[in-house]
Amino acid sequence: MTINSTEKGKILTANRLRDGEVVFLTHSGLWSENIDGAVLATEPQAQAALEARGKDDERANLVTGVYSFDAERREGHVFASHIKERIRSLGPTVRADLGKQAEGRGGHFAALQGV
């Protein structure tokens, strides 16, 4: 894998149980608040492993509402395919002063502005 390649796959997300913060499962098995830290599963087997890990952490009461979504990694950054996940990764598009985008945890894609 070279750093300039584009990889497509799934990443696992959830809300942290105690405060609802949007989090993404990382390589090390911890949950990151920043989508760039997410592990991208490109093979079905790896995706299944992610989902199993998510279920474990749900049972361990770390996170809630675990699911996976389509994303790609370009130049070391993770990009969500769907607008909903881009908004979850950044914060509300109508309040750029709030959420991950305002706190330096907003991943690497530009916030949507207006329509």
């Binding site: 809300n15 405060d19 609802g20 913060e21």
Partner: peptide, 13 residues
Amino acid sequence: RLMNGLYLQLHAY
């Protein structure tokens, strides 16, 4: 929690 008005939404509860 729903009986007490608490939802889980996009960015938080």
